[in-house]
Design a protein around this nucleic acid. Structure first.
Lengths: 339, 339
DNA sequence: GGCGTGATCGAAAGCGTTTTCGGGACGACG
DNA sequence: CGTCGTCCCGAAAACGCTTTCGATCACGCC
């Protein structure tokens, strides 16, 4: 491994001077600067991040806790998109991403905070982490800059971000109403995730504002995944009177519901209309193509990145909560009825 | 930040002794060992990975170059699955994953090797990297342990791994033949990726072995993505005589082809049979559900991990090339014809 | 009592950087 | 000719840890 000393020797200067050149300090003459740069290139020198981090106390890396449980299932193509655009932004500032493994040897540090401190990451990005995770309280107390998605974290250095779930749900219901539907069901989540709660809230708000009658038989809960959507749909179909449309808190549940409908001899998008949430890739490929509320994953990742960079570079910056707009994408799973 | 010296002071021993306790050296008495451990816990001490790495010359992290171009498109849910199981295995040995950002500031080190050395990763995992990438040759020369997927890398410390693409393609063709098809087309890739070439090879081998006549009008090329499958199908339909079945080198191209067929008033899975490759999540959700060759992403990730760990821990271990078995999953997109 | 032995501990060097601070050289200025 | 300011440069300390190697001590044995 070639070090700063190798360069110093070859250039006939001290290691200090080499370091100064490498870090762009002004107090080096043009001549020696060029000489050092030349030799650095010739030797193919690479600074040692560990050594540098040791003294600067910054690792130029951002820790990522990414939980893509079976339970979160199909949400993760999603989370991956978010991470990708997040990384593109922080990458431009020289950061790489350290993904903490879910599995660890027993001897290793455990818990969010311990692991983050162990690796000396400069900030943390959290995705798919359940609100109930142990270690979250001590994490926010740690004063490590954090941005989380879909997790309402409150701390002096913790911002969080999510789609406009309330607004998106309202959008869905309003759209259904505009298409002539008045009997509108809802399938939410049973785990009380923040997005799930907000989508339920939006549904109820819109129903009320539109003066539509709410019937508890038309409401069921799932876990965001396909099978649970299927079950939920079956349950709703047990009601004596059926809704003409159902809004699902995730695309995958809506897709599962299609299966349930067909089992009963009903045609989704004609006999019963469906609206999903997320706009996963599959949404436009199923039959009928699913009308849904699109989350802007790119904007989410980029905003998250900018927020975290800001938090990291600016010690007294107070945290924020950021909401990303959603949009309705209209496809074939909603029928116009009545008028 | 609490250091080893803080512990030493509190315990009335030297830092050396603390370090020994923390690293399980035998030459510490039971009594002081317990005392040090107690204080370590009380202080919530976390070893500093950078400092440790500096002296041990190991970072306990594995670098990942993950390229999920637009071009690779839908392959990436895939690659993500592979990475996830990879991480589960290496995590158990205490490794975390360092994802190199695609974007970098101009001042930062550039290229695979430079960046890997800069971060001091103990090994490298490569996914989705094109064979033609600059910097690959110098990377393999660097003697950093590497495992890559679907990229035929040859070097003293570079193993690579992929699905049994030749075998899988043969499987597909043989299955179609068993279903009575004799006129079988193929859509490969135009970029000469290793898996694309191998699937083409398997197709041709099987056709020959089965004595089926090969017609160049029945063969087209795409880029693994949906649109290109659609175009390729259209091109094949320009032939005077049509094939009764087409094997696609990716699921997404097969799904695109379904669209093309319907545009011509043909029903996929009845008028023309389709077989894909990959078994992406969507495959079973489209109509008709797609018959395909499933890649075992879990096995791929786990095998890759074991291989890399072995390479890292064992300096003279020669590299290997690993092939992961695939299986045919039969759904609704292939019709039985004839007999 | 001398000596070897095994158990336990610590001093010190070293890993590759950054950063502070002081010093030398040199020109300008009174 | 003394003094002061600028411009360059390097010595040294520090970051937090590991690891070698020698020192010390108690003990048992001849």
């Amino acid at each position: 491994m070639t070090t700063i000393y190798d360069i110093a020797r070859r250039a006939g200067v001290s290691a200090t001077t080499v370091s100064k050149v490498l870090n762009g300090y002004p107090d080096v003459s043009q001549k020696t600067r060029e000489k050092v740069q030349r030799i650095t290139r010739e030797l193919g020198y690479q600074p040692n991040a560990a050594a540098r981090g040791l003294v600067t106390r910054r690792s130029m890396s951002i820790g990522v806790f990414f939980q893509d449980d079976a339970r979160m299932g199909f949400r993760h193509p999603f989370l991956h998109d978010i991470v990708a655009s997040f990384q593109d932004v922080v990458g431009e500032s020289g950061y790489d991403l350290l993904f903490f493994s879910r599995t660890t040897p027993p001897s290793a540090p455990q818990g969010f905070e311990a692991r983050a401190r162990h690796r000396g990451v400069d900030g943390l990005f959290l995705l798919g982490i359940p609100r109930t995770s142990a270690g979250l309280p001590s994490l926010v107390r740690s004063r490590i800059p954090i941005v989380s998605v879909d997790l309402d974290l409150f701390g002096p250095r913790a911002s969080w971000l999510s789609s406009d779930n309330v607004g998106g749900a309202k959008l869905a219901v309003e759209y259904l109403a505009a298409m002539g539907h008045t009997k509108i069901g809802f399938v939410g989540d049973r785990y009380g995730t923040k997005p799930g709660q907000d989508r339920a809230l939006g549904y109820h708000m819109a129903m009320q504002e539109l003066g539509l009658t709410f019937r508890s038989e038309w409401v069921a809960e799932g876990d965001f995944m396909e099978e649970s959507g299927e079950e939920a749909m079956h349950r709703i179909l047990e009601a004596r009177e059926w809704p003409t449309a159902v809004f699902f808190a995730s695309d995958m549940m809506a897709i599962g519901a299609m299966k349930a409908l067909r089992q009963k001899g009903l045609e989704p998008g004609r006999d019963i209309s469906l609206v999903g949430f997320d706009d996963v890739v599959i949404a436009r490929l199923v039959t009928p193509a699913l009308t849904t509320i699109r989350q802007n994953t790119r904007a989410m990742g980029e905003e998250a990145a900018r927020e975290l960079l800001d938090l990291m570079h600016n010690p007294n910056r107070p945290p924020r909560v950021i909401t990303i707009p959603v949009e309705l994408v209209s496809r074939d799973s909603v029928a116009r009825i009545g008028g």
